[in-house]
Design a protein around this nucleic acid. Structure first.
Ligand code: NAD
Ligand code: NAD
Lengths: 219, 219
DNA sequence: ATTATTGTGTGAAGAGATTCACAGTGTGAA
DNA sequence: TTCACACTGTGAATCTCTTCACACAATAAT
């Protein structure tokens, strides 16, 4: 009966960094580390200790002045805060070059947030099993999403098809979309969209690579 | 002899949006549009007109109160501002699932910023031509980067190899890296790094998808 | 027991990004 | 020619995010 929502709204930036912290902490834990200070974690990501402490306020886990944070407990606390209480299944649409690479990458990685079904409109791909995941025809999207209660979509179809597929995902009940198609999607405000725009990123790198070229020193 | 650098430093956010504006404007131009107002462009990307006008201050192209911006001229002005005066070649390292998808995607797309060479350490891949691009052994990286004057790197190798490859790229003279490996790279401050962290993005979508679920209305 | 040390949690200050709001301007209508 | 209009460019206000700086806490050394 307690509110599932956080009292204050947490920024996108903070959520992203928490995800990153958790991954780094998992690696440290695997290497046998037990404790960590905010300034050590900060050094790993090239940030400030204050920022890390500020971010961790959101998850409500407190460290100790003398031993910093207990890595195991912190990982659990971040998971508790970031992850859904239930499993969240993911639907991927567009089993092309990028879609298959993503399926390979996420296969077996995050059990709580796994790609549960893939969709395409190419008859050659439909009904194949790719990286452990069944590929369905796009006309089955709504049914499968509802049957399996999928909440997140990954959109890897060509630009021309992207808006149409986004609308199908929304109609099927998807609540968030990770969009790789290089066009802005129009969706209702209650659906969250994150764009990954590689062309934009590459142009940023080209631009700032030039700008940075005359700075000195080690980061 | 005039300064190649902008007088004031332009934010990463603005550079990213300029890249996006250019792509949308190119599409509009292809559809035969001639002019556009800031509020129209804003509507396309779900932003505000003021933001677009503010961003365009950086490129130094002025619109007209009566016809808005001339699309053709604006595209040229943005290009003039964003693009290097010379061609910038790109080196991609890690011709795996993701690397090949990216090579396919960028192949023939941006002539001024094209993937000029690929590198891997898998003998099976070396000397093959993939999507019109030759794959070299990693030991040839420095030589090829220097011979061809490549300035930008795309890093698609497994995490364990990422720091080593980043250092090779930096030593070879690369000035900016687009990093897909999910670990923070340590590079000198005069090298710009942009990370694309799909796991982080997917977790953000899962988190905010849940949060947004009870908002109403159209975006 | 006391003290010195080192780090946490957080209010407040600072920096940075976005939005507001309005003077200035080019155009078409009267 | 004058006016009304709709938009641009930009200083100032606002909002958001980051960093500072310090009270407080846990321990180790004495
Ligand atoms: N490959 C990359 O590295 C890369 C990089 C950046 C962006 N993108 C974007 O990601 C998207 C996919 O890229 P890709 O390289 O994988 O392309 P691709 O052509 O290899 O794959 C597209 C897939 O989508 C399927 N498809 C097309 N229309 C469909 C529809 N209406 N419903 C369902 N499936 C449909 C096709 O059958 C195909 O399997 C594109 O929008 C592209 O711009 C790709
Ligand atoms: N596939 C995805 O969609 C995806 C998504 C997010 C992140 N990533 C990241 O991108 C990177 C590559 O992913 P992938 O799926 O293409 O992996 P992959 O295993 O398919 O490809 C990796 C490639 O790198 C090459 N390689 C390994 N060590 C090397 C070295 N020292 N020098 C040169 N080449 C080397 C391998 O031969 C292989 O061709 C990984 O860091 C992965 O975490 C991939």
């Amino acid at each position: 009966m307690s509110s599932q929502k956080p009292k204050v709204v947490i920024s996108e930036r903070t959520i992203g960094r928490l995800s990153l912290y958790r991954r780094l902490l998992n690696d440290l834990q695997a290497q046998g580390e037990r404790n960590i200070y905010s300034h050590e974690l900060a050094a790993m990501i090239g940030g400030t200790a204050a920022q890390i402490r500020r971010d961790l306020m959101a998850v409500g886990y407190s460290g100790s002045p003398t031993h910093g944070y207990d890595i195991r407990e912190l990982v659990l606390s971040i998971g508790n805060f970031l992850d859904a209480p239930h499993m969240q299944g993911v639907a991927l649409v567009g089993v092309g070059n990028l879609g298959r690479a993503i399926m390979a990458f996420f296969s077996g990685r995050r059990p709580r947030l796994a790609i549960a079904a893939a969709f395409d409109n190419d008859p050659y791909k439909i009904n194949r099993v790719i990286h452990g995941c069944r590929c369905y025809g796009i006309e089955d999207l709504s049914r499968i999403v509802q049957e399996q209660g999928l909440e997140v979509g990954i959109l890897c179809v060509p630009s021309q098809a992207a808006q149409d597929v986004a609308e199908r995902l929304v109609r099927a009940g998807i609540r968030g979309i990770l969009n790789f198609a290089p066009i802005p999607l129009r969706v209702p405000a209650n659906v969250y969209v994150e764009d990954i725009d590689m062309t934009m990123s590459l142009e940023k790198v080209a631009y700032f690579g030039r700008q940075h070229a005359n700075k000195e020193g080690l980061k």
